[in-house]
Design a protein around this nucleic acid. Sequence first.
DNA 1: AGCCAGGCTACCG
DNA 2: CGGTAGCATGGC
Length: 227
Amino acid sequence: MEVLSHIYKVLMELYGPQGWWPLIDRDTMTLRYHPGDYTPPSDDGELFEVIAGSILTQNTSWDSAASALINLAVMDALKPHRILSLDDAELEAAIRCAGFYRQKASYLREMAGFFLSLEGSTPSRKELLRVRGVGPETADSVLLYAYRKPEFVVDAYTRRMLAYLGIIAGDESYHRIKELFEKSIEPDFRVFQEYHALIVRHGKSYYRGRVHGEGDPLTEKLGDSCD
DNA sequence: AGCCAGGCTACCG
DNA sequence: CGGTAGCATGGC
């Protein structure tokens, strides 16, 4: 799957480093990307912020999830023990704009408890998957962007793009697609972080809505690398 | 007016 | 086991 390295190169040339995961700037209370800086999250607060964001953005636009995150930050509730001490009505009201707010409130609590139980250690993928509300994509997002582990994140855009480009059929399992990337890309968490972010960036332009892939510049640039 | 968004769980056969 | 309804608001 040399083609996956090629796609990475082309996407990087098109868009440049994306600086994921975006973090809240406490002064302006706005989300900020940090392209080229692979040191964050720099403390437990930012680490939990990534974790909370990965739950809030499930099947939801990032802008909606971001509003919910800001709401929590303003309430100084973007930390595990505060999430656990809020009552249902408060928590649900704060994250309502992110949709599925009852589920997500419950999921945030599950994650808060789990995070505290870690006492600073890094969770395994298997442990993360045992937390209610954490599926494969969320687990990989947390490991990749919070704990900086080289776990490739597969999302809907990834599947759609590879299917359109003829690299997969489209009905492959999450694990299968994840393996495809992990076998052909060097296991560098910085590369994995950028690659997934670039796919989302590209997907927002060409793989959202009804028609997928229309006008995708990748189709022309992949001509002579058909694996 | 609908369709979609950086998915997951529970339940169905 | 694989497949799918339900979850819910906000933006275009």
